[in-house]
Amino acid sequence: MKKDILIIFAVILALAVLIGGSNFQSVEEYYLVHIDDITPESETVFISIDCSDVLNHLDRLDKALLDEIPPGGVILPRTEYVLRPGDTAFDLLKRTARHNAIQMEYQGADRNAFGSVYVQGIGYLYEFSCGPESGWVYLVNGKFPDKGCSGYELSDGDWVQWIYSCERSNFEF
């Protein structure tokens, strides 16, 4: 009887420690926080987040945001990340923002009439934070894609630039 109890106790202890020592995450959560290591075989992409145009239009900037502008307007320099299958430009931004603790707010595709994710703010800079023509735009390999960021699937080697422009009417599409 005593030994049985001892065995049972040992098993329970092992289980308790195994469970206690394990980090339970949903699959989504895991893939969101886990940053893949870059290996020679990995497909990778690059992302940068830049708000330097704000420095050209400081007179238009919401005064409360002065402290949020990083030096040179570089919120994130060009950084390499592993490309996961099916990654969209938005998926990359979401993961990157989280990994670098950069504030990012977005509106789901079902909450606007465009059926596409709308990135409302990055680093506390929102549309119109720096004048009526200001807001975030994204480029892939130097060109404006022909779709919203949640619909643009990335390929190996792509460079996604998120740029805060204070003169969006002057952008050439």
Binding site: L6, A10, V11, L13, A14, V17, L18
Partner: peptide, 10 residues
């Protein structure tokens, strides 16, 4: 460590 302990105890 826990596994080792459990194995020992077992």
């Amino acid at each position: 460590a826990a596994l080792a302990l459990a194995v020992i105890l077992g």
